[in-house]
């Protein structure tokens, strides 16, 4: 795991900061350890500070009214995951849970306010971070709004259907994401949708098409 100072050096939030500035900021960084499954944030709750993943993986998810979990993204070391509620002072829009042992670094909200006034470059960097996130979210909205991803995934499944259990091509969810021009998380969600609709069944090593005609009806004619 990187030290607080090493972490700050690589964080886009502190891009362009001098070693002296980073050293000063590192004294304001707190550390928090989480066990597997422990919640870092609950939806609707107010966080004490801006949180970064230093070690391990944090799962961001929402739970539907039916109790189903929807994974929004997996946050790896170096990434922050509650900057929006930190800056708009609202509640967290998502749940955040440790997928294994996780170490978080954080900056208390009050300290962050002081830093934003003290270091104008920090505001510029925050804008860059948030803009990148907006671009990613816009691409996700495009994918999720138009149902076309489900259609594309359905088409990929039909095109890669093996004749027997031994001869079909083997596809990962990452492969399908690349083929459908979308994110792996969106493919995962599409497969879950198709399974809920009883068109496919996810098994270990196999995606079983249970209703080929139903899947074909989902494929948009112009794709």
């Amino acid at each position: 795991m990187t030290t607080k100072l090493e972490f700050l050096k690589t964080s886009p939030f502190f891009d362009g900061f001098t070693p002296v500035q980073l050293e000063a900021i590192s004294h304001r960084v707190f550390e928090k350890k989480l066990a597997r499954g422990e919640m870092a944030l609950n939806e609707g709750a107010y966080a004490v500070g801006l949180l970064f993943v230093a070690e391990g993986v944090i799962k961001l998810f929402k739970t539907s009214a039916e109790g189903k979990e929807q994974i929004l993204s997996l946050m790896r070391p170096g990434e922050s995951f509650n900057d929006v509620p930190m800056f708009d002072r609202g509640p967290s829009p998502v749940n955040a849970q440790a997928l294994g042992v996780v170490t978080l670094y954080g900056i208390q909200r009050n300290d962050l306010d002081v830093m934003l006034k003290q270091y104008p470059a920090l505001s510029q960097n925050v804008i860059q971070v948030l803009v990148r996130r907006i671009r990613y979210l816009i691409s996700l909205v495009e994918d999720l709004s138009f149902r076309s991803v489900v259609s594309r995934v359905a088409k990929i499944l039909l095109e890669n259907l093996g004749d027997t259990a031994a001869t079909g091509p083997r596809l990962t969810q990452r492969d399908m994401a690349a083929m459908a021009g979308t994110a792996r998380e969106v493919v995962s969600r599409s497969l879950r949708y198709l399974e809920d609709e009883k068109l496919i069944e996810m098994r270990r090593h196999h995606i079983v098409i249970r209703n080929k005609k139903g899947l074909e009806q989902l494929v948009e004619p112009d794709f």
Binding site: L74, R170, Q173, R174, D175, E201, H206, R210
Partner: peptide, 21 residues
């Protein structure tokens, strides 16, 4: 999950697509 977290694409869990209606 291992495939999902690997930024280097070094680990994968491939699926075979079969028909069983």
């Amino acid at each position: 999950l291992c495939e999902a977290v690997c930024a280097a694409g070094a680990i994968s869990c491939p699926f075979e697509i079969i028909l069983d209606e």
